[in-house]
Design a protein around this nucleic acid. Sequence first.
DNA 1: AGGAGTTTGTGAACTGGAGAACAAACTGAG
DNA 2: CTCAGTTTGTTCTCCAGTTCACAAACTCCT
Lengths: 242, 242
Amino acid sequence: MPSEVPAEAPSRGPGRDIPEATVARLPVYLRALTALEERGIGTCSSEDLAAATGVNSAKLRKDLSYLGSYGTRGVGYDVDYLRYQIAREIGVTQDWPVIIVGIGNLGHALANYSGFRSRGFRVVALLDAAPERHREQVAGLPVRPFDELEDIVDQQQVAIGVIATPAVAAQDVADRMVASGITSILNFAPTVLSVPDGVDVRKVDLSIELQILAYHEQRKGAPEEGGQRPSRRAGTAAGVTA
Amino acid sequence: MPSEVPAEAPSRGPGRDIPEATVARLPVYLRALTALEERGIGTCSSEDLAAATGVNSAKLRKDLSYLGSYGTRGVGYDVDYLRYQIAREIGVTQDWPVIIVGIGNLGHALANYSGFRSRGFRVVALLDAAPERHREQVAGLPVRPFDELEDIVDQQQVAIGVIATPAVAAQDVADRMVASGITSILNFAPTVLSVPDGVDVRKVDLSIELQILAYHEQRKGAPEEGGQRPSRRAGTAAGVTA
DNA sequence: AGGAGTTTGTGAACTGGAGAACAAACTGAG
DNA sequence: CTCAGTTTGTTCTCCAGTTCACAAACTCCT
């Protein structure tokens, strides 16, 4: 019997129970607003924002309405004000300390990714189990032994961890992360992690994204011969069925 | 939403109109089946696969039913057979040639990512606009000038391109890709790409994933109050909510 | 001041997908 | 052969999310 979260009052006001689909789009709006602000644009309509983010304008307005009424009818939204409100709702008005475990190719790239720092995150430590990596300095940070995980999480008050290890190590790393107090994990390893309730996991899988593209690509090539689209798959995907 | 799909005949049987949500899960099943096969397991039930992939077993059976009836009632699924059928449906029984544009930190990591080759993709070329990178050799491939894009796409019959450039360059790269015949794009740059109908784009955005985690993390820390501070740690991780 | 023109915020219909439940189809024992 | 046990494929119900459509609220012009 999986005990569900007790139903809270569906308070109409700003701040409670934002749909998951909306939460996933808020960062997109945030980025678009930042871009508008950098271009010196002070006000924008929902149509403008919708065009910039590729979202239906009605959906966008409904998304924003979950945060509150921050627009002005007949005018639109104040870019700076709305940007701040979204940042506050997401929780990125201050930086979150983040650690990265697994400093291979991908870990390297993540450690050097400047988008983290500018968008509410600060990489405070890099960890790797392999001793030969502990001499390296990546993105201005030393690569530290994995055993120091607990200390780092404790001292730096880390709540979010990134796993960029090979698949076999990922579950162990996740377990140690959870045990040390981390409650949100971004997993780049191609494994399904099992974690206790109360811990959030998001997974980014590069080859899955490509495979989804491949599925649609295959469909493009096959169904109709009369299409103007040149079938890009002449020699590779012939009929396979026996 | 400009992507209107022409109404096709809702032909029954395996092969047509698989729901998008199902398509996104097929690669997960594929990977789990490969893992089972490597462990020498010849047959599995929907419950087994569901446990391995973290998916509800009824949902899994429904997903598989879109492909056809590949299971045996009272027995389960033949691992090897089902694995092949899914691979065929996705279109990864042969390798798709892929190019990567933008060989910075992330491009480096992607070029070296072994998961592509083993899962239906073959990186055939790396491109970058910066001349100083053209001397490098990454993952056994030379970094070639971006101007060679058209030739490479044409000669190697490339249908899928990966963009790992900075945000400002991404739209230009996408335009050139589309002009040269690429019809599927995996975009790592933090920009909304606009492409003509018939071209698929999938976006992977690292900081958006982190921001979604941050939102939930913030909620955990201050369930009652609006005070937002990255100071977490409510005790040990197991069983956070009572 | 008043009316025309904009744009937001939201109630209501519509859509797609998730989960429960069950009949059909298979295996194996007696 | 029959019956009990197992597991698939499918139907039905329900819910979250999307989209439409419009009243409310604001600005600007005359």
